[in-house]
Amino acid sequence: MIDKFWSKVFIILTMAVIVSCGDIPTCLDTETSLVKVNFVDVDGKPKNITLLSLDAIGENDGFLQYSDSTLNKLNLPLNPGAYTTTFILEQASGTDTLGLTYDVVAKLISPECGLDASFDKLKVDYTTYSKINILQTAIHEDVIVNIEITL
């Protein structure tokens, strides 16, 4: 009888140890700094823009991957060192600005993996676009659209 009791205790302990051992931190980065922006027309359909350049105040080099490109979706990288990032979108028709505010929290993934930042509570501080909607204030990799700009 006592053997059965202790064998059950042993099994429970072994399972718990296995679960605990499986809880080893990984360096998988699940956070993103990218705000997903869609450009649409008045009917809500995707609308292409031709971007000559994309810059942000405080970022000296600009985001070269968007230079001279035609697109209807844009991923804007937020500055993890500030609570505001102002983007400057230069097109042939003129220059638009988009100032975004947000919460940013630093977190230590693990001492081996280092620090990461998570963003939330996205708001539009100011913009030259006439119609802009925030569809999702949380900033995650699995978010499809954060901001929709109607042109």
Partner: peptide, 15 residues
């Protein structure tokens, strides 16, 4: 805590 947050576009941001 003292370190850096690395962001692909903004580089290393001290924390």
């Amino acid at each position: 805590v003292v370190g850096e947050v690395i962001e692909d576009n903004w580089g290393a941001v001290p924390v």
